[in-house]
């Protein structure tokens, strides 16, 4: 069983990396691009099924910082 955990900044937190990427995209000529937000994901392979609660615990305790980030878990 593989779960994918997506982690991204909470709305309202300015991510300068995303801003820099957006500016470069605009410079490439894509002037219609108004916003880019960058995130990250983790694929976690488990030896047993039905361990969503473990994945959520890992996401809360380690993979994301609840002060600044949200996470979402999906089954792959």
């Amino acid at each position: 069983m593989i779960y994918r955990v997506y982690v991204e900044f909470k709305p309202g937190i300015l991510d300068p990396e995303s801003e820099a990427i957006k500016r470069t995209v605009n410079q490439l000529g894509f002037s219609n691009v108004e916003n880019i937000s960058k995130g990250k994901f983790f694929d976690i392979e488990l030896s047993s099924n039905n361990c969503l609660s473990d994945i959520e615990k890992i996401s809360k305790e380690l993979l994301s910082n609840p002060v600044i980030e949200n996470f979402k878990v999906v089954k792959k």
Binding site: P16, E17, A20, N65, V67
Partner: peptide, 17 residues
């Protein structure tokens, strides 16, 4: 200390990058 929750808040990338 912020990551282990002994202190409030978080420290993120400088606005200037």
């Amino acid at each position: 200390l912020t990551e282990c929750k002994l202190l409030e808040g978080a420290l993120i990338k400088n606005s200037s990058q």
